[in-house]
Nucleic acid binder design. Structure first.
Lengths: 357, 357
DNA sequence: GTTAGCACTCTCCTTTGTAGAGTGCTAACC
DNA sequence: GGTTAGCACTCTACAAAGGAGAGTGCTAAC
């Protein structure tokens, strides 16, 4: 804290050390206060060993090269998106969670519901409580899952409920309408057969595998069987939109940047539209690990004033889905990254436990 | 419209006709404009055949007896909660939906997902689109459902996934942890047995019925069977909180009464807390049909500035759950009641179709 | 290269004034 | 007695004006 930053040692390709320090200080302070940071404040509060005037000069340079910006002529500076990017990539101090926070997360998961689908909801509940930001979770992507169990349940004469359970215990269901009545025993027979044949098949290949089976078994069964299988393949192949759950949207109301209803509206709209929620998380669901998307880097226009921190959760190397939080670009990245990372890991562990025999 | 309301014929127990008319006009106008209604406006716009001064006198009376109130001394009048109540009970003109609206609802449901659980989400999506208010749905209450199918799926050595399907195709799942490994065949045997024994049993009595079965079959099976059944009964008896889904929360942002963030916050909080959502709908889930709850009649304090219109959906006389919308007390009750009623009926029909053989 | 000093700018808040809408009251009218 | 016109009064909303405070940019000196 008391080191002097008069030297001009350049960091490889980036800013010189003093500029870096100023960018860091401005960002840290703005993250905390949500107010533009002035040169005097910096000089007084952060003891850099240089005067406000010098800081002003440096800030002027930083603004010129795009790392800082001024909301209006006589205000202090705030980081630009580029500034945040630099901060996140180079300056941010990794912060690990406190013991009590880790404990809180664990105990929150301990009191777990015995409903497997609630696990997702619970995960983002924890996430939003810890980050104070709206949190999202992309449900396990079916094509990344492995088949565990299938059952055809007759709902009425012409409707069959198809239940597919994945290895991590998630359940997919589809309703099939048949043009002909099917007997319960027949369904049971088909279910048993499928369970035998499909063991361990990736859901990505389920349709294709089924198709092959049909051909093989074609002669052994009657017309009903054949047609039912056709319907089944079709039902399993129609990709449903992946679901993205949301929790803690109210938290966004606490952020000063959204205190005006007009600023708030696009964000709420974004959060409420499943497709847009999906867009926010989807990119990251491909790349393993933690990902930070700042401001205009977001593809969703409504999120141009926001940053999104996501992390994937996985089982045995397979990326199943992703979790993430959305907040103003002025967010405590260090903390959020730790939390999102830890929660994703925790969820991964829970699911891995479920998968392994 | 051109009738004169100078007479003072009293309506049984309520207000005299002219006061009623004024209350109605004030309410109608306020619902439309969201602005306090003045005497001059009424005289000019609604042609009641009386002067502003007379209207002022009447309004003064109406205020004294609690039907109207003034936001501030020199503003027009707006209905009090009591006024709305009177309006809803006695004055509101039932309005049926236009042919095109009915068509819109039907076609929205037509494009139905083949996922049975998405039906709920879809229902309130329609509801919120039509009413422009946040909409809620209380998922089918399990205890009101009838058993259709059960399956125990081994997830790993010590975890069993219990799937229960109800007659209307809804799926409940629970994860059971066993202290001992169970073989897949054993689970299959238990599942088959349960499916035979539990046909047509109400889920309300599932635990008890199971218990009885255990006793009967006790001798016929081994220790594992017995212990598994114990776990199963326990899992099925622990009541999970009933789920209440939400859709269209952004709509509340369009309402002028919530344009200030501080007014908005409690409402958003209310909508986001599942328990509170449940409280809003729960009352009505007991009483069959449509129910209007105005302002302070709501048990949830945050909803004291709101009204809630709910309707139950049912299958063959069994009330399964409820749908509802939440809006400012200044809502177009006539329209909302029609929409909520129709959508609830439509959902009931859909589910009834699924239930009947 | 660094710093002090100073004029300038911009926001935010408060004050002041005005227009507009609406009421309550009184006295007159039917 | 109910109804109405007239008028003073009240309150809000909006705009304009002024001052305090924070911060910058520039210049000249160190």
């Amino acid at each position: 804290m008391n080191r002097e930053y008069s030297g001009k040692r350049r960091v490889d390709g980036g800013l010189d050390i003093r500029k870096e320090k100023i960018l860091q200080v401005v960002t840290d302070d703005y993250i905390e206060s949500a107010e533009p940071v002035g040169s005097r404040t910096i000089a007084k509060k952060y003891n850099l060993g240089i005067s406000p005037a010098t800081i002003r000069n440096e800030m002027s340079d930083l603004e010129e090269s795009g790392y800082l910006r001024q909301p209006h002529t006589s205000a202090g500076r705030i980081p630009s998106h580029q500034g945040y990017r630099y901060y996140v990539d180079a300056l941010m101090q990794e912060r690990s969670l406190s013991q009590s926070e880790l404990e809180a997360i664990r105990s929150e998961f301990e009191a777990k519901t015995k409903r497997i689908d609630s696990l997702l909801q619970q995960t983002i509940k924890v996430l939003s409580q810890l980050t104070k930001f709206p949190s999202l979770i992309l449900a396990p992507q079916l094509h990344a899952a492995v088949f565990k169990y299938i059952q055809l349940v007759p709902i009425n004469e012409y409707n069959i409920l198809v239940l597919v359970v994945t290895d991590s215990g998630f359940i997919e269901n589809k309703l099939i309408e048949t043009p002909f009545p099917i007997h319960e025993d027949e369904l049971q027979r088909i279910s048993s057969m499928l369970n035998r044949k499909l063991q361990g098949v990736s859901l990505r290949n389920l349709g294709a595998t089924l198709m092959r089976e049909i051909k093989e078994e074609m002669l052994a069964h009657d017309r009903f069987f054949h047609e039912t299988m056709q319907l089944l393949v079709k039902a399993l192949e129609t990709k449903e939109k992946e679901r993205v759950y949301l929790e803690g949207a109210v938290n966004i109301l606490e952020q000063p940047e959204f205190k005006e209803i007009e600023k708030l509206k696009p964000i709420m709209m974004l959060l409420e539209t499943e497709e847009k929620r999906y867009n926010i998380l989807a990119d990251s669901s491909l790349t393993h690990g933690i990902r930070i998307t700042i401001g205009e880097e977001n593809t969703e226009e409504a999120a141009h004033e926001c940053s999104i921190v996501t992390a994937t959760y996985e089982v045995g190397g397979r990326t199943l889905g992703a979790i993430g939080v959305l907040g103003p670009t002025r967010m405590d990245y260090a903390r959020v990254v730790s939390v999102v990372g830890f929660v994703a890991e925790y969820l991964s562990d829970l699911l891995t436990d479920l998968c392994k025999k």
